[in-house]
Nucleic acid binder design. Sequence first.
DNA 1: GGACTATAATTGGTTGAACCATTGAAATCA
DNA 2: TGATTTCAATGGTTCAACCAATTATAGTCC
Lengths: 243, 243
Amino acid sequence: MSSPAFRPVATRRAFEEITSQIRGHLARQSLKTGDRLPSERNLADQFGVSRNTLREALRSLEIAGLLELKKGATGGAFIREGGGDAVVAGLSDLYRLGNIRPEHLTEARILIGTEVARLACARRTAADLKALEANVAEAEAASKAGDLGRRAEIHYEFHSLLARAAKNPVLTILTDALMEMTRHFVEAVGYQPNPYVMPSRKRLLAALRGKDGEAAAKEMASMLKRLQRFHLALYEETREKRK
Amino acid sequence: MSSPAFRPVATRRAFEEITSQIRGHLARQSLKTGDRLPSERNLADQFGVSRNTLREALRSLEIAGLLELKKGATGGAFIREGGGDAVVAGLSDLYRLGNIRPEHLTEARILIGTEVARLACARRTAADLKALEANVAEAEAASKAGDLGRRAEIHYEFHSLLARAAKNPVLTILTDALMEMTRHFVEAVGYQPNPYVMPSRKRLLAALRGKDGEAAAKEMASMLKRLQRFHLALYEETREKRK
DNA sequence: GGACTATAATTGGTTGAACCATTGAAATCA
DNA sequence: TGATTTCAATGGTTCAACCAATTATAGTCC
């Protein structure tokens, strides 16, 4: 219990040492967004490893979302603008593997979505509001055109925009991840029209205009709870069909 | 706006095709946790690529948290028990890079922590409660012994245990990620005694015993808000010092 | 017989040299 | 000037080795 708690010694592989060094430079700002690393051949020399080993290091940083590798004469390894792509991909993997189930997804969406709506009310800029209004208008157009797939995409985008308006990157990334999982879910159960979403969006916009956080939170919560019932029922249905 | 929206054609790299195939097998359960893939040499043959290319694919799956590579005669690539390591690492990277700032971290902790406490009350098992009680006892012992570093670790563990009691893997992983970021934060500003944490823990345990979700949520929220003020003040202090 | 020990086989880790494919800029030509 | 060609740099891929860790196995000693 209170023992010294030794950590496994874990013989570090060469590529790990390299990623660690590069991460270090990132942390202390000696490498920053947009910078270009030397070429693979050059870096391999500097680190004193073969090009193959160096490539494994770059590959792992690419997967982690820290680098972007471009081909060609002016190509190379560039420090990426920090999006949470790796986080989104990671949660998406867990969903696909069944470690996260639809009921977990819907529950998390309710929790996060409600707070996002509340915060967005308090922190939204005029530009945020404008983007959200445009999104709802687009959704309406797609709805009228009967393009369910497109409407779904626009709906995901709404949540993403709202999260950005909340001005907290943790919530932004998490929302994007939840939407990505929802995308998988919806693709599996099929697109279905949700007649209560559009009216809810309009009430939400009204709350955002008036910066009424409580109203926005309430509206979002009730909408997501209806969506939850809708989605989980749909899921049970397709599950039975599969049998 | 409503144009056909072409997607970039993106010449797929060989290793991406491989990871995609393996992910596919994972999704449709033809590969499951604990399974061992054939050896690298064998896989390279099957995919018709060189061993180096195959290794980049395995490496990227390893970084994504899907595989674990073991050396030796009985080694190989094993399908990992799905933990959210990649997600934790990804958010951790974003924090280190400054894309997530301490105020975002503390805010997210309040939002998530409060809901986790509420859900944990409703869903905790007797075993969960026991583990949490043991954790608090340990924290008290470390506190008396004056071991701040160890006490901090035990405190992170408390949140992790509580999240597991809430029985939603999204919240579990997110909590782990938030704690990892907190760990970085605390290491940067230095360990400081928080006299109000231990009493709060006891009140929280009482709420958990009685399954009083509202009381637990309230207690957690107020504790985390105090911690937020404490942490952000500490952060400003060390920031000034750095100048 | 049973515990220890050398040995061999298997696996991931690493190396180095070579060639391909893409990209963009410099050189060339009309 | 402007379009075209050429060329050099870069990441992507291949091949053929060898190293290092790990474990099953056969052998050895008591």
